[in-house]
Design a protein around this nucleic acid. Structure first.
Length: 299
DNA sequence: ATGCCTGAAGGGTTCAGA
């Protein structure tokens, strides 16, 4: 049994988002990464497990580290989660009014962690522009925008957007012409989401740098740094104004058995008095809602 | 070789991913 590491003091907060490409395959990388980087709120995508299987696999290990879990998964594909050791309340699985394909896929989960609303998203891939999958992607993004619009200021959208916001976000724009992830309608859908007042905090921090978050497993793409930036942290102004650091943890993409995505890590300064900002974990476990699972935090 | 890896399902090969 390890010592719980729940935070007990107000202070700066580290948030992260990571498409792990199977929690089951990635747990040998995920747990040491949590121990090393010590994030307070982690949004995960492509967990590829049912909620029961996720809890059986990692529930104890994560509780020992002080994390409560908001899970919205399904077998084999998709799946999102939020881990938090700064509180986890009002968990909502999915997006109201989201389209299915044909069924509702596990692509969004929201929770309030220390007065900030987090939503962990895995946007549909889109496959081929103009295809049924592509139209689904655009419709899903429209429902994401509708959901966020209600309280954009206090919200942080974290996840795999499956859109490279600009040509600088792909290693070779010419190679991607006509491909999904870079088309005008996708970028417009992302811009409309950001028009609610959400800042792309990594790009704000590194306006002229080549920054990628995904590299194909094949052909040594990572080692040549031939990637894309498709995993984003989009923060409302009150949170964006507190960003002290924002970076891609390329270390997690190296070595054996990595995901094809690297985590994005964002450090926030302490919230001003009484303003929004994570504080101490709640004394007791919050209640689950709408069928998504919330595990109690260790105390 | 539009599929050089990886994951998953369900079989000994397929589909999906971005």
């Amino acid at each position: 049994m390890r010592t719980p590491r729940s935070r007990t003091t107000v202070g700066s907060v580290r948030i992260a988002t990571w498409n792990v490409n199977s929690v089951k395959q990635r747990s040998p990388r995920l747990l040491p990464w949590l121990d090393e980087r010590q994030p307070d709120v982690v949004c995960l995508q492509e967990t590829k497990l049912t909620d029961d299987a996720f809890a059986d696999l990692l529930g104890d290990e994560l509780a020992d580290r002080g994390y409560g879990l908001a899970l919205h998964g399904e077998a084999s594909w998709n799946g999102v989660a939020i881990l938090s050791r700064v509180g986890l309340e009002d968990v909502v699985a999915g997006l109201a009014g989201a389209p299915g394909f044909p069924h509702q896929e596990a692509r969004a989960v929201s929770a309030t962690c220390g007065a900030v609303r987090f939503i962990s998203v895995y946007v549909p891939n889109g496959r081929v522009p103009g295809s049924e999958h592509y139209r689904y992607k655009l419709a899903w993004l429209a429902s994401l925008r509708e959901t966020v619009a209600a309280s954009a200021d206090a919200t942080v959208v974290c996840g795999d957007m499956n859109i490279a916001p600009a040509d600088d976000d792909v290693f070779d724009p010419d190679a991607y012409i006509g491909q999904t992830h870079v088309t005008a309608p996708e970028r417009e859908a992302l811009a409309e989401l950001q028009a609610l007042g959400l800042r792309d905090v990594v790009r704000d921090r590194w306006p002229n740098e080549r920054v990628f978050t995904y590299w194909d497993y094949r052909a040594g793409m990572f080692h040549q740094d031939l990637g894309m930036r498709i995993d984003l942290v989009l923060a409302g102004a009150p949170v964006a104004g507190r960003v002290r650091a924002a970076w891609v943890d390329r270390q997690a993409r190296k070595g054996s058995g990595p995901s094809d995505h690297a985590p994005v890590i964002v450090d926030l300064d302490e919230a001003p008095d009484g303003d929004i900002g994570p504080v101490v974990p709640p004394p007791s476990a919050p209640a689950a809602r709408r069928g998504s699972r919330v595990l109690p935090q260790s105390s």
